[in-house]
Design a protein around this nucleic acid. Structure first.
Length: 869
RNA sequence: GGGCGAUUAACUCAGUUGGUUCAGAGUGCCUCCCUUACAAGGAGGAAGUCGGGGGUUCGAGUCCCUCAUUGCCCACCA
């Protein structure tokens, strides 16, 4: 059979994915096996696959494929998130491009457009995941706004409201004036920016005196309702009971005293704008100040501002500074670096704004959620994130869950008689409740709250709601699959999502949502910059897959991404992955190409087989341990070296028959068996290639994907040591051949003088690999030969005219001086009484052994030098 | 401002309870080789005061202190 020289990934990817789908390997339903469940972090329904998803989902697929091979009933639930702000923004933009303004549409019509958009563009990302090889149970694909999931969200809202954990109130919230909605604290990103600090004069009412304040937001002076100074500040004590006038509008505001004010900052005088600053709000609350809200929802100024009405806040900032300067109110400006909050979604500057919102009390919910992570009931990998998590959970604030959007689950609160409201799962139920308050209420009197719920208020239920465990808390599926096993996600959504899922898990299933949380790093470019659309530094994952194959990309992503460490992505990593694919492919070609014959098994093959058997199990043990510790890239690297170095470079080279010669049947079978086991270890990382090769090497009834993970059996370390010894000898001879320019074809003789006990089972292997015609043992050194030493044994290769006596001497001298130096340091330790007395016996014994070894080695070298010179 | 990490070869990173095997891996680099699976390859090689400085200890990448650099999270200083 002719097999292509390089591995063609594309063809085989399509073939096998279709095959696996057809066979239904991805599907899961409860049975008597132990379950292994992963729920996908649902990507934004309108999103496209980026490198972060690639890493994340590769990891999940590795975990799920390995678990499947271990005999678990694996269930990887895929799905998408409705991502209310992001999706609504996209729909608004699309409509705008078509000349339609959102404000001209009814809620109903807008949602029609949104759903249409979702149907057309949604879920593309899931198709892309298939290219990666993700073995999700596609029959279970969920969307956070599916009827069942939305009902779950509403049910939870009503329940929490009834428990008194949800309340409605006017609070200072983070206002996104572009998305026109409140956002939660977690959705505000504080960034350092270069700003200006403006010093502005306020005149004191009834005097010529001026009071100078400093502010970074001069436009808000129009909403000022006080000036505040520190009561200890003697500069201002005479102003007690006085009033100041707001510049330009001459509004009279009190001068108040509060220790909150830092006397050192600016002028020590603070303007107070309770409507637009959280601190000022608290000050206002304390001192009973008037609240003047000067901002419209879209960030323009409203009538209350008196001036600049209708202009944008940043435009007003410029204008007011000009006008203040013109009227001599502006004293000076200073450059200042300060932190400003930006919206995570729209990147617009967040305005603190008073508004009526819905909140969830979180302090009670957070208690078990914190405990179970701290006591490792839920394990974080890496565990360092426990600290971050604890810090957040201990300082958790109430969660603002309402959003002034249309796309999402509408809050099930129904108003009547003005501000009276009831909370119920349906309008009909709400009516009953309302009628118990006012019997005259009819259905048409009820107005549902306009707001929708924060997206995370649906995703926090995800591990439960995908199994319908909210609506039916005791159903077969939730009982079987929950708690899930692993969650793989980025640390950036530790609070948004992970923490809240844990809270919901204990509240609604009385059980953790997952046992392990694997926190991936953030994928950055080679310069360490976060990959982003605006920087254009993110490669297109699908193009990468086309170029390097899905397996190549998977390996590339995993090779250098220890959990929790950021991954500096470089395409060369994928190249390495592709090269590895090709290496395996060619090893297969080699094995497949051998003619097989019943004949005697060469001695070299016999020992090679024995050695590989043992080295395989030693590595398997290490791989299993790495998986248990979620050191996935370590497991991959161990596999990589087992396949490339041990199997290809050593094993195959050892058993490879001479050119066009047949291989004996016994060795051939062993080789195929080894290859089978290696393919199994590789499968979670490289599913496509391995399935292809699996079917190429033998006739199979069973697919690799559903085969069993190799069983670990014990190994004999002394065989591995023996090989180690042999490999040193082989390397020494190879190096010599190279130095002396002796071709591999030219066979050599090797004479061994044993000074140190060793086993010699590897002799046939040595002879085979370095082409020896003779390997003999002697009691005396062979004079006039090239020599080297391994483990104090002496090796001699007669190479006649190739031998350079001077070079030999020099080599021996340098070995000698090295070993003398080594001996000196060992003896230094041993002559230290405190070392001998305090160190454990075995450590001392090791040093003594080093000493005696060094001494005998020195004796050998001295003898040889003498004989040469 | 508070908290948590990181600093080991040119690059990306391992290094678990302080002690054979501890100074490692992969990549890159250098030399030689298109040898009959694979040049997407083979054989060999060089490469590090383990961020600086103290300390504990018979013994320190490993534990403690301190400084420097750097990253992340949280926080209401205008």
């Amino acid at each position: 059979m002719d097999i292509a020289k390089t591995f063609n990934a594309t063809v085989c990817e399509e073939k096998w994915y279709a095959h696996w789908m057809e066979k239904g390997y991805f599907y899961s339903q409860p049975d008597d096996r132990e379950p292994f469940t992963i729920v996908i972090p649902p990507p934004n329904v309108t999103g496209v696959l980026h490198m972060g998803h690639m890493l994340n989902n590769t990891l999940q697929d590795v975990l799920i494929r390995k678990a499947r091979m271990q005999g678990f009933n694996t269930c990887w639930v895929p799905g998408t998130d409705h991502a209310s702000i992001a999706t609504e923004a996209k729909v608004v933009k699309k409509l705008a491009d078509e000349g339609i303004k959102k404000s001209d549409l009814t809620r109903h019509d807008f949602l029609k457009h949104a759903w249409e958009w979702k149907e057309n563009h949604g879920g593309l990302i899931l198709e892309q995941l298939k290219k990666l090889g993700a073995s999700c149970d596609w029959n279970r694909t969920k969307f956070t706004m599916d009827e069942a999931l939305s009902e779950s969200v509403i049910k939870v809202f009503v329940d929490l409201y009834n428990k008194g954990l949800i309340y409605r109130g006017v609070r200072m919230v983070n206002w996104d004036s572009k998305a026109l909605t409140a956002v939660s604290d977690e959705e505000v990103i504080h960034k350092e920016v270069n700003s200006k600090l403006y010093y502005i004069n306020y005149s004191i009412d009834g005097s010529d005196e001026m009071l100078t304040i400093a502010t970074t937001r001069p436009e808000t002076i129009l909403g000022d309702t006080a000036i505040c100074v520190n009561p200890k500040d003697e500069r201002y004590s005479h102003l007690n009971g006085k009033f100041a006038l707001v510049p330009l509008i001459d509004r009279k505001i009190p001068i108040i005293f509060d220790e909150y004010v830092d006397m050192e900052f600016g002028t020590g005088a603070l303007k107070v704008t309770p409507a637009h600053d959280i601190n000022d709000y608290q000050l206002g609350d304390k001192h009973n100040l008037e609240i003047i809200d000067i901002l419209n929802d879209d960030g323009t100024l409203n009538e209350s501002a008196k001036l600049y009405v209708g202009q944008d806040r940043f435009q007003v900032r410029e204008n007011i500074v000009t006008d203040l300067a013109k009227n001599k109110f502006l004293v000076k400006t200073e450059d200042l670096v300060n932190k400003v909050g930006f919206s995570e979604r729209t990147n617009t500057v967040i305005e603190p704004k008073l508004s009526m919102q819905w909140f969830l009390k979180t302090d009670g919910l957070s208690k078990p959620a914190l405990e179970k992570v701290m006591d490792d009931t839920i394990q974080f990998h890496p565990s360092k994130f426990k600290n971050t998590y604890r810090h957040w959970m201990e300082n958790i604030k109430d969660w603002c869950i309402s959003r002034q959007l249309w796309w999402g689950q509408q809050i099930p609160a129904y108003f009547f008689d003005g501000n009276q409201f009831v909370v119920a799962e349906t309008k009909e139920l709400a009516l009953k409740k309302a009628q118990s308050i006012n019997p005259n209420i009819t259905l048409s009197d009820l107005r549902q709250d306009e707001d929708v719920l924060d997206t995370w208020f649906s995703s926090w239920l995800w591990p439960i709601s995908v199994f319908d465990g909210i609506r039916k808390p005791d159903n077969e599926e939730i009982n079987y699959y929950y708690p899930t096993n692993d969650l793989v996600t980025g640390p950036d959504i530790l609070f948004f999502w992970v923490a809240r899922m844990i809270m919901a898990g204990y509240e609604y299933q009385n059980e953790m949502p997952f046992k392990n949380v694997y926190l991936t790093g953030i994928v950055r470019d080679k310069q360490g910059r976060k990959m982003s659309k605006s920087l254009g530094n993110s490669p297109d994952p699908l193009e990468l897959i086309e170029k390097y194959g899905a397996d190549g990309v998977r390996v590339g992503m995993l090779l250098s991404s220890a959990a929790g460490n950021d991954l500096l992505f470089d395409e060369s990593l994928c190249e390495q992955g592709r090269n590895f694919s090709n290496k395996i492919w060619n090893a297969t070609r080699l094995v497949k190409g051998w003619p097989v014959q019943e004949k005697e098994q060469p001695a070299a093959s016999k020992v090679a087989i024995q050695w590989f058997e043992h080295t395989f199990h030693k590595t398997l043990e290490a791989i299993n341990q790495s998986f248990e510790k979620y050191r996935i890239s370590e497991a991959l690297m161990l596999t990589y070296r087992l396949v490339w170095d041990d199997f290809c470079s050593w094993y195959l080279e050892s058993v490879k028959p001479d050119y066009q010669q047949p291989i004996d049947a016994e060795t051939y079978q062993s080789t195929l068996n080894f290859l089978d086991d290696l393919l199994k270890l590789l499968h979670p990382f490289m599913p496509f290639l391995t399935e292809e090769v699996w079917h190429l090497t033998r006739e199979r009834k069973e697919d690799l994907m559903i085969s069993s993970w190799p069983q670990f059996t014990t190994y004999n370390q002394s065989i591995l040591d023996d090989f180690e010894y042999a490999s040193e000898i082989i390397t020494a001879i190879r190096t010599m051949r190279k130095e002396k320019q002796i071709a591999h074809k030219e066979s050599l003789k090797l004479v061994v003088k044993v000074n140190h006990e060793t086993t010699t089972t590897m002799d046939p292997l040595i002879s085979r690999l370095v082409n020896l015609s003779e390997l003999t043992y002697a009691t005396q050194p062979l004079e006039g030969a090239f020599s080297f030493r391994v483990k104090s044994n002496e090796f001699f290769v007669p190479i006649n005219d190739h031998l350079d006596v001077e070079a030999e001497l020099e080599k021996l001298q340098s070995e000698l001086s090295y070993i003398r130096g080594f001996l000196k340091s060992v003896e230094g330790k041993l002559s230290n009484q405190r070392f001998v007395n305090n160190a454990p016996e075995n450590v001392v014994a090791v040093e003594r052994k080093k000493q005696s070894d060094a001494l005998s080695k020195i004796a050998i070298l001295e003898l040889q030098i003498k004989s040469l010179s």
